[in-house]
């Protein structure tokens, strides 16, 4: 009791940011207000590798599996940053949900999770295959979240969506960051098998 009282001026009595386990199942194509974004998960494809066709018709590799027999999962998402500041695309990087949520709004519930050492997906613009690093306010980005995975091509992919809070940083209360993910919705998307 004394320890709690002493910690009060330092935030000891602040409201805890618990994880709400009640998530709504939504259909692919349904807009979800997953702060700071409005997200629409539209579909997924499994491919041998991700490529980019440049202006002269040359096909260049974008993302190729490093492990034999592995494939690339490409999840199509439309994202609109509804905050007043640029937001890093890393918030969309689709980490696996195993081991707890990080500061992302998209995470992978299925086994076809990212194999990358960082456990993160790459974020590309679906229209021009550029590497998206940040999303400016009010612009709708048509994105592909892509990651290497092992195992057979799943028929469906379970994606979790969470909302973040714009809260003071742990170190400095003057710095606000998007954090404290709270699960919001779950969407099951059919996976098109485009592997050879």
């Amino acid at each position: 009791m004394v320890a709690v009282a002493v910690s009060a001026p330092f935030g000891g009595l602040d409201r805890a940011h618990g994880v709400d386990s009640k998530t709504e199942h939504v259909q692919p194509g349904t807009p979800v207000a997953a702060a700071p974004f409005k997200l629409v998960v539209t579909g997924a494809s499994a491919v041998d590798k991700l490529t980019k066709t440049v202006a002269d018709g040359t096909v260049e590799p974008l993302l190729a599996p490093s492990g034999a027999g592995n494939h690339v999962m490409a999840l199509r998402v439309s994202a609109t940053n509804e905050s007043a500041r640029p937001v890093e695309a890393a918030l969309l990087s689709a980490r696996p949900s195993k081991g707890g949520l990080h500061n992302e709004v998209v995470y992978v519930l299925s086994d076809a999770s990212p194999l990358d050492a960082s456990g993160m997906a790459s974020v590309y613009d679906a229209d021009d295959a550029t590497d998206v690093r940040l999303l400016n306010p009010g612009v709708t980005y048509h994105l592909v979240l892509a990651w290497e995975y092992a195992g057979p091509v799943p028929a469906t992919l379970d994606i979790g969506l969470a909302r973040l809070s714009y809260d003071p940083d742990l170190v400095s209360k003057d710095v606000l960051t998007w954090q404290h993910p709270a699960p919001l919705a779950q969407v099951t998307v059919p996976v098109k098998d485009r592997t050879s």
């Binding site: 007043a84 500041r85 640029p86 613009d125 550029t130 590497d131 998206v132 690093r133 940040l134 400016n136 306010p137 009010g138």
Partner: peptide
């Protein structure tokens, strides 16, 4: 005009 901030991206 409404105070929103936009940044250039390397893309």
């Amino acid at each position: 005009a409404s105070g929103r901030i936009f940044s250039p991206d390397n893309r």
